[in-house]
Design a protein around this nucleic acid. Structure first.
Lengths: 161, 161
DNA sequence: GCGGCGGTGATACACTGTAACAAAGCCGTG
DNA sequence: CACGGCTTTGTTACAGTGTATCACCGCCGC
């Protein structure tokens, strides 16, 4: 089993994320263009889930406007490569903290206080979910598991203010 | 444990849903107004997840326009009462097939072929998820579990056409 | 009657996402 | 090098999702 302990205990730094992305694209013969790099960088630097328009604004400067549609295209690419994830309950995006296989069951832990998002995975959860689906006669192609609550750090901060 | 077997094997009929809603509102001293009734009815009749604008259009007739904002308010009410659920991955709404306590872990099984949505629940999944969250030091307040795939009926239809 | 309250109507607006087409860059072949 | 095909990006327009605000109505209690 493989999981996370504390909040951002193991978040890769922005630099690591970019380096990993670049290596991965070279390996797969894909273009890690400046725009894609900037979008990934913006998502990685933010520390919390970012909306596409947030990213567009973040990348825009006087004289250089980045349109949301460009951000969406870059995000689509990055998601296909497993470099960012979409948080469906927030319409927002986060950098992928590790390299999962696409489709592997990831659990998103969304802190309602600090807005940070951790990733976890659990073979136990996947196993029990798989059995439940099988009993229901349902063949899964993709699943979303998002949990909202308080991360350890924020809970402590609340208890001892 | 409590779960569903086949596709809509136990979907309550529209009439049942409305009767249950009416009883529940009376019991809680809340108003089950015509608009709320119509919105619930529209969601229940559809057979698949409906967007708020779909519902608004469905309820509108020449000379009687129902604005989306009214639909949203009715949906908010119905969700608070646990009578409808929101499918985050689709921005759409379905009637609740049973009476869950709000916050109880429900698994949505979304058929990518017929668009139908079944509900399932599993103490096994809930238990393993709870343990995983505890190990991660995360205190959950609400969780979303949505699975996309093929329901039994659609899978059979594909295999033997 | 009168005031308060919840529900509804209506308008406006912000946010999220996609379609369609044009322009620019890359890369192979002849 | 020229050419043609491909991917990426820019631009515009638009569809879909959701919220804020204010006005109006109906009901209930005083």
């Amino acid at each position: 089993m493989h999981r996370h302990e504390g909040h951002d205990a193991c978040h890769a730094g922005t630099g690591d994320t970019l380096a990993r992305a670049e290596a991965l694209c070279r390996e797969r013969g894909l273009q890690f263009t400046p725009l894609r790099r900037e979008v990934l960088e913006a998502v990685a630097e933010a520390g919390k889930a970012q909306g596409a328009y947030d990213i567009a604004e973040r990348l825009s400067a006087p004289g250089k406007r980045v349109a949301p549609v460009s951000v969406y295209r870059a995000l689509d690419f990055l998601m296909e490569q497993g470099l960012v994830h979409r948080i469906a309950s927030r319409n927002a995006f986060i950098p992928c903290a590790h390299g999962h296989a696409p489709g592997e069951g990831v659990i998103f832990l969304i802190c309602r206080t600090c807005g940070g998002v951790d990733e976890a995975s659990s073979e136990e959860v996947e196993g029990s979910l798989g059995r439940t689906l099988e009993r229901a006669g349902f063949t899964p192609t993709h699943s979303i598991l998002e949990v909202e609550g308080d991360c350890g750090a924020c809970r402590e901060r609340k208890q001892a203010p």
